[in-house]
Amino acid sequence: MPEIVVLSGKGGTGKTSLTAAFAHLARGHVICDLDVDAPDLHLLLQPTPRRSETFRSGHEARIRAADCSRCGQCVDLCRFDAIRGDDPPVVNARQCEGCKLCVALCPQAAIDFIPRHCGDWHISDSRMGPMVHAQLRPGEENSGRLVAILREEARKLAGNLGRGLILSDGPPGVACPVISSLSGADLAIIVTEPTPSGRHDLKRVTALTAHFKIVTVVIINKGNLNPEQTAGIKSDCCQRGLPVLATLPHDPSVTAAMLAGKTVTEYTANGFSAELQAAWTGIQRHLNTVARKE
């Protein structure tokens, strides 16, 4: 089952808008939003959840005020500054990393260690096909495990429904969740923009996909904002043997489609949409190459 992950490193390059458009062009495949921190794909695809599950991971400390002797030891011990106050001290769950040090050493055994509700994930129907997505609760650690769960569910779903492709909107950045989104992927699409940050992050993300030996293609979005930087990105890509599948202009129809709750290819058939269609054809060609190699 081929799996495509769309990444960007830096946020705001248009990754989600483009992923949604590809979901529309590909129609009927399994769609997966792996940005569990700030998922936005659902704002364009309006999925209806069919099944929702709680995501629990690790534990958090909670002090029982009635049993606490106010000795203050836990406040001093915590390396994460997660316990404050003195009458009684209180654990700030958002800062608690669940290490259990305070629980184990409390002389009154007055600290409980409770499983942590970190977020929720859903299997939904959308007009572009079945969709797997999640929402982490604010302040929770994104360990990559929720990303791994979503990918596993997407694979099961694709297998059960006989869908030929999994298209994932990847997490931002280059850390654990991104690493988790890449393991076993077949093709990475990197959406970048001609800004200093965009170019800088492109190098970091492509270093990562190279590390995992994943076939990688690049789309430059908002290319006309800085033709010089765009040319620089193209030459960076050329040096590294990364095909640039499209250079898209900054186009107000992307925001307009977002306001209408639609993908840009649904919203308009303008030149921008035509270029996206051409890019999607290019992506399919690369995917076929990958499939043949395997």
């Binding site: 791994a148 393991s183 076993g184 995992f212």
Partner: peptide, 12 residues
């Protein structure tokens, strides 16, 4: 027997 961990699951 394998002498090395598998690539695909690296850092999962």
């Amino acid at each position: 027997l394998d002498q090395a961990p598998s690539h695909r699951q690296a850092r999962r």
